[in-house]
Nucleic acid binder design. Sequence first.
DNA 1: ATGGTTGGCTACCAA
Length: 286
Amino acid sequence: MRIATWNVNSAKQRLPRLLPWLEERRPDVVCLQETKLSDAAFFDLFMGPLTQLGYEVAHHGQGGFNGVALLSRVGLVDVEHNFPGQPDYLGATESRAISATCAGVRIHSLYVPNGRDVASDHYAYKLEWLDALAEAVAAGPADVALCGDMNVAPADADVFDPAAYVGHTHVTGPERARIAAFGLVDVVRARWPEPERVFSYWDYRAGMFHQDLGMRIDLVLASQPVADRVAAAWVDRAARKGKLPSDHAPVIVDLDEAPDGDIGPVVPPPSNPRRGARTRLPQSRD
DNA sequence: ATGGTTGGCTACCAA
């Protein structure tokens, strides 16, 4: 099963890139963030083409800002908007979280608050939001993956220059402590150990992508039973290239089939190659 | 030039 997560920075603007990308990468489960659309607008634009591609679709949006979605062709059940205890901002619940069970895994598509500035109320909101999420996830199923724009670089190796971020959000101790406190496996970092530099976001400004001055803030955090099934985990850097890209690249994670557990002897597969076998890691180094 | 871009929305704010 292939899971992908992508902050698209406006699903409407990304439509001409998103559909060909789905056909190329063929993810089974897709988590989208920053759709910036109402549910009605998302369904108007995407329901036809996504159904054509075989996806069930769930969207939680408010129009203009935020907005998250889940697409799946391996089942999409028990869809939940927001999470229990999710804090409000300025008196409103923002559309930053949606979850569903897909092929037995509880998948969360998350757009964590940016935090803006360490002195701002948005930063306090970010920390509260992550605390509440940890509590909700701990009370949920054991097979879980948090996917999305976490707006935290977990370690210094996840920013192009730690010195450039001193005093800024995304790299502070309290933010990193929240990511660690989930007690989950950062599956891309597990596959690309330090000091490998793997970024998922490059600011639009100042030619940052061209110079590879980025951050790794889009994460897939998986519980151990799910992490044990990871066959490949990488950032699809190619999707950040070319005309009118998002400022984020997708993260792609391939899982082997779930072990059958104690439901009896495993039936040997037929002679054709097993689906879900290890894929190569196509990330280029240009 | 003291973010140089992009996107939402239409005067700026957010990232």
